[in-house]
Design a protein around this nucleic acid. Structure first.
Lengths: 331, 331
DNA sequence: CCTTGTTGACGCAACGTTAATTCAAAATAG
DNA sequence: CTATTTTGAATTAACGTTGCGTCAACAAGG
């Protein structure tokens, strides 16, 4: 391994100068010619800084962790992009973790909890972590920021309540009266359900209970089946989770329910996949990219000991993307 | 920060003993009572080892990088699981990277190339990296292993050729004569196409040229449209990439082509999503979990300086999962 | 009795980097 | 021409850990 010591020797300067060249330190000065000589030697020898030594000395790793419920949920694509970009602007790399791999005692968690691994942690959907994992995180010395609500940590949300409201209001404006809210579980889903409820209440309609069947494709299918068993079948549904929308479409197909003719569907969260389904799914797009960026900024506030802004992201607002899965009620 | 020094002081022992307790070193011995006292002090003070210092001293980070073309492609779910599990067995954590973030000069790549970040790198689909990035990787001092073929590095593949053959043979056995191969680009796709070609040749059928429209939903839609423009329209298609299958279904719907009645579809690679589409997609399941595990084992061979096995994973073989998107040719 | 072996522990030198401190030489001011 | 400031750089002490070398105390063997 070629170290600064080797470079220093080759360039005929001291270690301090090499370090200064690497870091652009202003304190230790040097002639331009010396700088060039050092750079030349670095090039020649193929010097690569040793992150470990650097981290030890500076007591920061320039790495942050981001924990997602399920890293391959396409909803997180823009979120990841926002986090990566903002992290890069802070000179940091992102260690991606899956809530699945965050079992208590797991290698990943142990590593995260030990010192000198990351400068801070970003968690999306704290609600899906085990209680004991949460307890371990609570005692973690490094800053933790939760995307989409937390009881014990600073947090930033997108406007889930508003998303539920937008989806529901759209269906109401299309003339629907029997609308159900399907899928999800936990705090975020409750918020969206609350938005649904507010929209229903505001229009004098009776909100149906939350069919909190969970996440994923199967959850959507289950939710639809439950919904259709009601005394008066709904003519429209708001699907909490976007992957559940796939399940809703499948179940509707299997039950012989035509979408959108007999049932209108609006999803919350938008991903590319939605425009490639048939019918293409009308959905509420959430500002996930901005959430990612804001999360990193807030985390770095925490890391720097500054007070962090936090709160709900209202700019941009959730936005309805109209496709083919919802249509005017033709009762 | 509480260090081994603090623990040593609290337990009334030397640094060496604390280190030995932490690492279970046999060289430095101690009475069971001493060990207990140290453990007690660690507990009391909430000692967490400093990974950075540890890595510097031991010259290994117990972290490996895994680069995927697109981390949220569900195809990689089992691959990631295999990699995480095997890595954990080696006491390592996984730094997940996206080929998108591997642009030359990116923070992620810089970090990866500098020393003391990872002990080795696992790359899936090297073919999708920029040439300059590949050049930078080539000069990397740490072991690199490529999943699914490489020219310059050790590699492990799943049997892509066989997958293409299995999919095609299945359609041939259903009585189809005009079968096309759609989607993808690069080495892997060529292998699968080769399998398709071999199956066609073996049955005395004329293979159609590879419609290498790339990856993703849109690529599938484009591929199908191209395929249907042929003088004699195909009655069956093999879709190279699983996400492209979604696009094929959408395009078929838009063109009024009934699947499977007028067109049979078989996808290569299988993911949960396929069973939730309508029609549910018949697909060839690849041993991605095993690929992940084998990749990590081979990488650790390299890290340890042992000769690495490498080659094509033939156990288990690619396996056909029959659903509803392919049926007997009713010409 | 001395010799040899074992137990239980300590001391210390790295690992590669950074940044504060120091200092000689050159440039500028008075 | 001396005093002061600036420039250009070297020395050095950490950062927290690990593992080799050492060693005193005690036990067992001859």
């Amino acid at each position: 391994m070629v170290t600064q010591r080797d470079v220093a020797r080759a360039a005929g300067v001291s270690l301090a100068v090499v370090s200064a060249v690497v870091n652009g330190t202003s304190h230790t000065r040097m002639k331009e010619s010396t700088r060039a000589r050092v750079l030349e030697a670095m090039q020649q020898l193929g010097y690569q800084p040793n992150q470990t030594a650097r981290s030890l000395r500076r007591n920061r790793t320039d790495m942050i962790a981001m924990i997602l419920n399920k890293v391959d949920n396409p909803v997180y694509g823009p979120l990841r992009r926002g986090v990566y970009e903002a992290a890069a602007e802070h000179g940091a790399t992102v260690l991606l973790g899956d809530a699945d791999t965050m079992r208590s005692g797991s290698r990943f968690l142990t590593r995260l909890l030990s010192q000198g691994t990351v400068d801070g942690i970003l968690i999306r959907g704290e609600g899906l972590l085990d209680d004991d994992v949460k307890a371990e995180l609570r005692s973690h010395p490094k800053p933790i920021l939760v995307l989409e609500h937390a009881l014990d940590h600073p947090w930033i949300d997108v406007d889930d309540l508003r998303a539920g409201e937008i989806a529901t209001r759209f269906l109401i404006n299309l003339g629907h009266r029997h609308i159900v809210f399907v899928g999800g579980t936990g705090y975020l889903s409750q918020q969206r359900y609350l938005g649904y409820k507010q929209a229903m209440d505001a229009s004098g309609l009776a909100p149906a209970p939350h069919l909190d069947t969970g996440f994923g494709e199967q959850a959507g299918a289950d939710g639809l089946r439950q919904a259709m068993q009601a005394a008066t079948a709904p003519t429209a549904i708001v699907v909490n989770n976007i992957m559940s929308a796939v399940g809703v479409l499948a179940a509707a197909h299997d039950l012989g329910i035509a979408i959108p003719d007999r049932l209108s569907v609006v999803g919350i969260h938008d991903v590319d996949l939605m425009q490639h389904l048939r019918p293409a799914v009308t959905a509420v797009r959430m500002p996930m990219y901005q959430l990612g960026r804001a999360g990193v900024e807030a985390l770095y506030d925490l890391i720097a000991g500054r007070p962090s802004a936090g709160g709900v992201i209202t700019d941009p607002e959730p936005e309805l993307v109209i496709r083919d899965s919802a249509t005017r009620f033709a009762g």
